[in-house]
């Protein structure tokens, strides 16, 4: 058997060598060919619009457009990032233990539990958020319970409050937090925890020194996937909030519809992007992950 297979293998091998030798001129640009559709798409639908938006933001006054939008919207800008930060932190607090338990204790129910985490996503974003309105309206189940327990006084509601907006932001982006954390914990070698225990670590210390650092890439990805859309979101504030909870996204969305291509709005959009970008870089530096920064 070995004698018959040997020549076959060597023939294949020699053919492969020809391919690898670089004689075929087609080979070198194959990778470029493969990325071309994606690159073209990004160029037409992302880079060019971004560029024109940038140019627009500098019309009628140049950089002063930026200082104008910042001073005009300072409350909204601060509010936006406070909301996004709180929602992200809340998503970590809820999502990390959830991901941890599914990954370590899920056993044969792992996939089922993960499906449950993702299940709300089978309902559209808008309907999901609107359903919170039903949950939270004055006289609805949540408010009635809080009234009867005495956490809310009788004339207080939840709808329209910052709490409603932040809670819905947290809820809507929670799966984006859970999934990457789950993946990073799930792929961790469980014997590392045995090794830590063997080296005199209590379970708490083993978590701090081994599990947590090894799940940081997942935590990092989850944070970005939660924070960035939360900071740019307008749906939650629109449907569940009030004038008290206006975010940058609401301003852009409202005005872009009416007064197309206004330099100040372009500046506001650019600023939102810039702040997120700077935030991400700072965050990456602190966390020490090389993935994005």
């Amino acid at each position: 058997m070995t004698t018959t297979s040997a020549p076959v293998r060597s023939r294949r091998f020699s053919k492969k060598e020809e391919d690898d030798s670089g004689v075929h001129p087609r080979r070198w640009f194959t990778p470029y060919l493969l990325i071309a559709p994606g690159a073209l798409w990004l160029l037409v639908f992302f880079i060019i619009p971004l560029f024109s938006l940038g140019r627009l933001s500098l019309e009628n006054g140049g950089l002063s457009n930026f200082s104008t939008v910042i001073s005009d919207n300072s409350t909204v800008i601060v509010r936006t990032f406070v909301y996004a930060t709180i929602a992200t932190v809340a998503a970590i607090i809820i999502g990390y233990p959830l991901a941890y338990v599914i990954a370590t204790k899920g056993g044969r129910f792992k996939n089922l539990l993960l499906a449950l985490v993702v299940l709300p996503f089978f309902v559209t974003y808008l309907v999901r958020t609107l359903s919170w309105k039903i949950l939270l309206y004055d006289g609805g189940p949540v408010v009635s319970i809080l009234h009867s327990v005495g956490i809310l006084s009788d004339n207080q509601g939840i709808l329209g409050s910052p709490f409603a907006v932040v809670a819905a932001l947290t809820y809507n982006f929670l799966p984006f937090m859970v999934l990457p954390i789950y993946v990073s914990i799930e792929k961790m070698d469980r014997r590392l925890l045995e090794a830590a225990a063997d080296l005199y670590s209590s379970p708490a210390r083993a978590f701090r020194r081994v599990t947590l650092p090894l799940s940081l890439p997942g935590l990092f990805a989850g944070t970005l996937l939660t924070f960035i859309p939360a900071a740019g979101d307008f749906v939650n504030s629109e449907l569940l909030g009030s004038e008290r909870t206006v975010m940058i996204g609401n301003i852009i969305e409202k005005n872009f519809g009416k007064e197309f291509f206004r330099p100040e709005l372009s500046a506001l959009s650019f600023m939102l992007m810039a702040i997120i970008l700077i935030g991400v870089i700072v965050y990456a530096r602190i966390l020490g992950t090389e993935e994005l920064a």
């Binding site: 070698d189 014997r191 590392l192 045995e194 090794a195 830590a196 225990a197 063997d198 080296l199 005199y200 670590s201 209590s202 020194r209 081994v210 650092p213 090894l214």
Partner: peptide, 18 residues
């Protein structure tokens, strides 16, 4: 195990990768 005074060399070493 963390309170036992023995240490293990694991089969695939289980070194801390980070």
């Amino acid at each position: 195990p963390n309170k036992r005074d023995v240490n293990t060399v694991f089969q695939q070493y289980a070194l801390f990768p980070h």
